[in-house]
Nucleic acid binder design. Sequence first.
DNA 1: AGTAAATTACGCACTTTTTTGTTACCAGGA
DNA 2: TCCTGGTAACAAAAAAGTGCGTAATTTACT
Lengths: 110, 110
Amino acid sequence: MKDLVSRCPIEEVMQVLSGRWPTLLIYYLQEGTKRFGELRRDNPTISHRMLTLELRKLQEAGIVERTEFEGYPLRVEYNLTPAGHQLVPLIDALGDWWETHTSADVHEVL
Amino acid sequence: MKDLVSRCPIEEVMQVLSGRWPTLLIYYLQEGTKRFGELRRDNPTISHRMLTLELRKLQEAGIVERTEFEGYPLRVEYNLTPAGHQLVPLIDALGDWWETHTSADVHEVL
DNA sequence: AGTAAATTACGCACTTTTTTGTTACCAGGA
DNA sequence: TCCTGGTAACAAAAAAGTGCGTAATTTACT
């Protein structure tokens, strides 16, 4: 998904939230401040390249805040911004919708 | 995003909604029944292969319903399912969140 | 005391994998 | 022949993974 096809805000959010990692990272950051290495341990299958890339993207989108501390070894902390926190219930709502609509329903792919 | 990393419903929805097209297609189908060709005209930059692929995915996810009519030339109609309609406000909420949080805010990337 | 090694959060270049696009082809009636 | 709504095969593009390097300080060993 290189660039957008419309100027619709929905397309813009989805560009940020699309993929396996954004919502997972938001989910873990919701628990509180996390360091780079902690996030790696939280999701062991992400590569460090992807993790930095995704964190940068979320940061640019104003969802995540990055704080770098002086000293060695380098220490960096990640948090959700206020906007990021506001986003959480919306994402949860999607999860809830999915659960309810896949449980009772008719269209099951068996 | 080949397969999932957790059994979290959020990851499952995002697998379906990720990418440029799913939300756009839902948006257009919200207007009512659409035929394959109409959807192509609605989003001229999608390739017909992608369109079929995405529609199949949405269909399997229980968001879209496909109705095939006998006769030639072949006629096929697409609709949102009830679950699909319920999903719309949730997606809109994301768009609204994006709008409000990118407009007033501090983290602008200029 | 002196040296070696580990630590943290990446960036960069290169390779592999995955996704998307392109083209050709199908059916049968107007 | 064109129309519709596809499918299948191959090609191109994009995304993701891998391994190496880096910085300055602690810790580990001899």
